[in-house]
């Protein structure tokens, strides 16, 4: 909320050991440590996490939704990557 515009950070929370970090939201902070402190106060007031990541939003490299069709096209016609593609006769088990 600064006059100059503090950088935006994305916040990721690991809710408990064994699970991966998941995006929770974002916030502005003057520096990395403040981002971590604010992330704790903003997103984990009810013990929602055991680990926090913050990363500056401008450091994230994202795919372009307008290019989705072309970008994800290579996977589209490869249904043989799914186990359901294969026909297994009745009577064959444990496969």
């Amino acid at each position: 909320m600064s006059a100059k515009g503090w950088p935006l950070y994305e916040v990721f929370i690991r809710t408990r050991a064994g699970l991966s970090h998941r995006h929770a939201g974002s916030l502005h902070a003057a520096d990395d440590q403040m981002a971590l402190d604010h992330a704790r106060d903003t997103y984990t007031r009810r013990m929602e996490g055991v680990s926090l990541w913050v990363v500056r939003s401008d450091r994230i490299i994202a795919s372009d939704p307008a290019e989705n069709a072309a970008f994800f096209e290579p996977a589209e016609d490869k249904i043989y990557r799914h186990p359901t593609f294969y026909e297994i006769p009745d009577g064959v088990e444990n496969l």
Binding site: M1, S2, A3, K4, W6, A30, D31, M34
Partner: peptide
């Protein structure tokens, strides 16, 4: 806010 910015700048 100014102090936080000054601190961030100094750290950087």
């Amino acid at each position: 806010r100014e102090a936080a910015e000054a601190y961030a700048l100094k750290q950087a």
